[in-house]
């Protein structure tokens, strides 16, 4: 049973479509593993659907007739059901919404070592938006102590880790606000891979690991823009 879920506010923004794409991606990875939140979103969609269905439009009949004939012409032209890309069973452990960035499995990604037991792979940078990355930490390893300068969402894809507040397993959705300082530790049985969505770069607070901070900033889209 998963213990960490997105709040109802986040799920509502997801359902109404106003959540940023990066965060919606995080939510969808969680939904992939969480039947309860899937059911919750389905019910939230019902609210949207009823409001949607109760609207009226005042546009003229002629105008609608024109649009309709465009549609009918378009479907006659391309009357083939769209080709769905083949599901790759080998990588079925990778959530569907992430497969586009991880087409050949975790190992084939461009990993950047930050410490011997901790590496990072950037998946996507929304210009001026959050950084979407995977973190990969060896079994039993402790992440260098760090704080978040902005909000951070973490979704566990593989393995488990714990911090001062609890233990997090596959599928858990963990939302941290800034000023939250923590030192996660991965469980001893296997490595831990997480999807992380960072509004602004992680800041390491250890005296040695501080040296990593310019790198963390460099790879974050917000700061890359400012040339910092």
């Amino acid at each position: 049973m998963l213990s960490c879920h997105p709040t109802i506010d986040i799920l509502t923004d997801y359902s109404s479509g106003s959540l940023s794409l990066a965060h919606a991606l995080g939510v969808s990875v969680h939904l992939d593993q969480c039947p309860k939140c899937r059911e919750q979103v389905k019910r939230l969609n019902m609210v949207g659907a009823e409001l949607f269905a109760s609207q009226t439009d005042t546009v003229s009949q002629d105008h609608m007739a024109q649009l309709k004939s465009n549609v009918m012409a378009a479907i006659n032209q391309a009357d083939v059901t769209e080709a769905k890309h083949q599901e790759r069973d080998v990588f079925s452990h990778i959530p569907a919404s992430l497969r586009r960035w991880i087409p050949k499995g975790f190992n084939a990604l461009n990993w950047m070592y930050l410490t011997p037991s901790f590496k990072l792979a950037t998946l996507s940078n929304e210009a001026g938006g959050p950084q979407i990355a995977l973190s990969r930490i060896k079994a039993g390893a402790r992440l260098p102590s760090h704080t978040h300068t902005g909000n951070e969402v973490t979704i566990v894809l593989k393995g488990a880790f714990s911090d001062e507040d609890g233990l997090y397993r596959e599928g858990d959705f963990i939302s941290r606000d800034h000023n939250h300082k923590h030192q996660p530790r991965v469980t001893k049985d296997e490595e831990c891979i997480c999807l992380i969505i960072l509004d602004s770069p992680i800041e390491f607070t250890g005296w040695m690991t501080r040296l990593l901070n310019p790198i963390m900033r460099h790879f974050h889209p917000n700061n890359a823009l400012n040339g910092a």
Binding site: L21, L25, V41, K42, E126, G129
Partner: peptide, 24 residues
Amino acid sequence: RIDYMRKNGRYQSDIDPEEFWSEM
């Protein structure tokens, strides 16, 4: 609607909403 706004500037992004705002 999300897709349209993305392509037209509100969201600068290489993420395709269809991939994860699925019809479940």
